Amino acid sequence: MSETDRPRLPGYAEHPFRGEQACLLDAAWLHLAGDAPRPHRLPPFWQPSLGVRRTVGPDGTVSDVCLTLFGPAGRARLYAPAPGAEMIAIRVQPEIAAALLKQHPREHVDAKTPLGALPGFDAVRRLAEAGAPGPVLAGALASVLRQAGAEIAPARDRVSHAARLIRACRGRVRIERLAGHLDLPERTLRRHFTDRLGLSPKAYAGLVRLNALIQAADRQLRPDWAGLALRFGFADQAHMSGEVARQTGLSPARLHAERIGLAEISKTGAPALS
């Protein structure tokens, strides 16, 4: 296996959506803790997810099935799953979340919210209770969300366009130039963007860039930090290190070592979350 093919976290898989689907859905993700789960650190991010939590025993028995809204993470945190814990979910683009999920991202920051019966999700719950494999559940969740998305026109307004542009350039954008491109006063863009997503375009761009950087580093055993700083638009490596430390509580090297299992998890700057 090459360094660029190195998986990011044991038990974790992520499958991005492409094309028109990506206007609504960011990625399907699965975390299967197994019998001896390893805690790992989550950086802050802003896409909410809708999915299933459940526990699978050593004999394959399924229990504690719960449809869950996984909110954005406003700060770095440690995830310490119990043995057998499984999470299978679809990450939703934040600018469409309120319309698609009927839940505003800012109302669920740093929370995992159990949901009751939702239209269209009874079949997903039955699959989860019957022990369907994670990829099957992810496909069923995506299908329901795509059907719901078909009933609401994909947003073509300037706030949605701004969010997509920020992601397309991996957060490397000056907000005044973005506002100019959209033919909007910067203050107007900031106000409408914050109303829709729950944070400013500058803050969102910072989270997009941070996560793109971390994911790029995760795919390397020995990251070229100076090269990554240049690639992601930081003034220099020191600037990049300071920003990563501010957002996660750790230096890039320490964070990377934790995430690929070469260092013990530190609780510095990140509350534990079960």
Rank of each mutant, 00 (worst) to 15 (best):
H31S: 15
V56F: 05
P39N: 12
W46E: 12
E14Q: 15
R54G: 02
F17I: 07
G57L: 04
W46L: 08
R38W: 05
R54C: 00
S63I: 08
T55W: 06
Q21Y: 04
Q47K: 07
V65M: 06
R54S: 02
L32T: 07
R18G: 08
P39C: 15
T55E: 01
H40Q: 13
A33Q: 07
S49I: 00
C23Y: 02
L24C: 08
R54Y: 02
R53C: 05
W46D: 13
G60K: 02
Q47I: 04
V56A: 06
L50T: 01
G19Q: 09
P43R: 05
D59L: 11
L50C: 01
D64E: 15
L42V: 03
L24I: 00
L24Y: 09
G60A: 05
R38P: 07
E20T: 14
F45A: 13
A33Y: 03
D59M: 08
L50Y: 01
P43T: 13
C23M: 10
G60D: 01
Q21K: 12
W29N: 05
G34D: 10
G34A: 13
T61Y: 02
R41N: 12
Q47R: 10
G51S: 04
G51V: 07
G19F: 05
E20I: 12
W29A: 10
V56D: 03
A22V: 02
F17R: 07
L24N: 09
H40V: 00
P39L: 14
D59R: 10
C23L: 13
L50P: 01
W46Q: 10
D64H: 14
Q21V: 14
A27L: 09
V65L: 06
T55S: 07
Q47Y: 08
L32G: 01
C66N: 09
R53M: 03
A36N: 11
P43F: 05
G11C: 13
P48T: 14
G11Q: 13
L67S: 09
S49F: 00
P16R: 15
T61W: 02
A36F: 08
D59C: 06
L50N: 01
E14T: 11
T61M: 11
H40M: 14
Q21L: 15
V65H: 03
L42M: 08
H40R: 15
